[in-house]
Design a protein around this nucleic acid. Sequence first.
RNA 1: CGGGGUGUAGCUCAGCCUGGCAGAGCGCUACGUUCGGGACGUAGAGGCCACAGGUUCAAAUCCUGUCACCCCGACCA
Length: 566
Amino acid sequence: MRMSKLLFKTLREVPAEAELPSHQLLLRAGLVTPLAAGLYCFTPLGWRVFRRIENIIREEMDRSGAQEVHLPALSPIELWEQSGRSVTMGQTLFRLADRKERGFALGPTHEEVVSFLASRHIQSYRDLPVTVYQIQTKFRDEPRPRGGLIRLREFTMKDAYSFDAGWEALDTSYQLAFDAYIRIFERAGVPVIPVAADSGAIGGKDSQEFVFLTPNGEDEILLCPGCGYAANAEKAEFRRPDAVAAEAAPLERVSTPGQKTIADLAAFLGIEARQTAKAVFYRADGKPVMAIVRGDLDVNEVKLKNALKATALEVMEEAHVRAAGLVAGSAGPVGLQGVKTVADPSVVEAANLVAGANEADVHLRNVNHGRDWTAELVAEIALARAGDACARCGAVLEARRGMEMGHVFKLGTMYSEAMGVQYLDEQGERKPAVMGCYGIGVDRLIAACIEANNDANGITWPAEVAPYDVHVVALNLDQEAVATALAGLEAELGAVGLSVLVDDRPDSAGIKFKDADLLGIPVRLTVSPRSLEKGGFEIRNRRTGETDVVGAAEVVGRVRGVLGIG
RNA sequence: CGGGGUGUAGCUCAGCCUGGCAGAGCGCUACGUUCGGGACGUAGAGGCCACAGGUUCAAAUCCUGUCACCCCGACCA
């Protein structure tokens, strides 16, 4: 491709909207152009990168034995009603009606549709196992699209679904997908770590996210330097710091005027936060719930939601707090009526806590679970934080930020039951297929790739992802010797299957070099009167900056060397 | 949905407080000079100042409302 013909535009300045390095470079290098919040156009260069990422994914999925399919993005709303997700996806689901007013949805993911497909093709255990995948556009009406290609409203996902006869067989399919993912991220030049993730209230067993660790990530990850345990903060298990041990003392009222927060209360009474109980109010599927954790801990809403098996959990609004007869700042579980109580073990095990008396400006001292009150549900609902002890080895957990690049998930039979994906086993018994699902965000992977591969001058693409293999800068192309040498070079590189971008624009050398650095193609070859005088072409490694002059005879070999293809 | 910020040329922004000709740099077009790390000169093109209403002799500027975009939070199988 000749740059004089290429539809592209680099920007010298960073558009005001971009904060993440990847977002800035995507825009500056002209790989994408924003259309609206969460919607981007890909330019020819950007699309080439997209296609190369797609191909890596396709190759590795195929290698793992998965079969590519294509499912419609548009699907009848009935399908979503059947699975229940018309309700649970809520506003995130893009809905529309056809001319006859029949309801449709734009798929945010494809469990329902793939289940439909599977139900038409799977009848016997002999048809299993099978894994299908597609690389498809997804639509999600996200409350807040952000970060360039990180969170979009229309995006491309590689989504795969496995169907097995039984959980044990699923383990094998899951492992195959897991291994494919490791290879994909490796080839795409994005370092990831697998971390334990929440699998939601719908059941399911294991769930792991592949996380790219970066300070710009939106997920909080907890890592154990001792045993290597890694988990999403929502999922992370930890050892609660010890409670203050004591014999149960008599309950007593204490006046605490104006003491609303745990920090205030502890300071006022001259005690530690861990000697108090923290009560937080929620509405779980519309019903009032009080979550109680020790004062030094915070509520993990995902764990709470799972413990309650709730589909919707929200912090209780002021009006509902009053309606439930709760006193913000002085609420506690003792004597509480009409509100479901969920307690973390940290509260159950602790003696003599200070808790709200459900009366303004009054707290109770020496509250003991089992004597003064009993929780309706005891479950681990506290949030792990950096500094907590690892549940497995006791070492101190560290917090890191990360971007979720992929997710593998043992789904189970939820969708196969709802959508009727059944098979007959050896005994002739009808059973729901056990499903797994496996997703990778393609657009997001491009952003992460840039986030992981850039320097002060621009992008430094991994060889397999770069829009072209070689960037040829031609200077003084009006001189016949240069034009002839360029033609020969292009022919030679093309003959061995290397893709070449030629900067044949009549601009100054400085502009061309700057653009070459920004675009980040791994090898730059310069053809100019000066290079020819020195005996050939100047070759430069974008990553290392290493520069040398090579003759026409060695040029292909040297280029391949930089690209790492022999 | 809550909090904060921004909307003026393709991009980055000034002008707004204190109402009175629509601005700069970069980019773009033409010509000339230059020619290996974002060159220089000359001449140009390019604007519904986000939108709507109001105040005023007069609104980019003041007032009200709406919309869009960005950031933090909530949310995100």
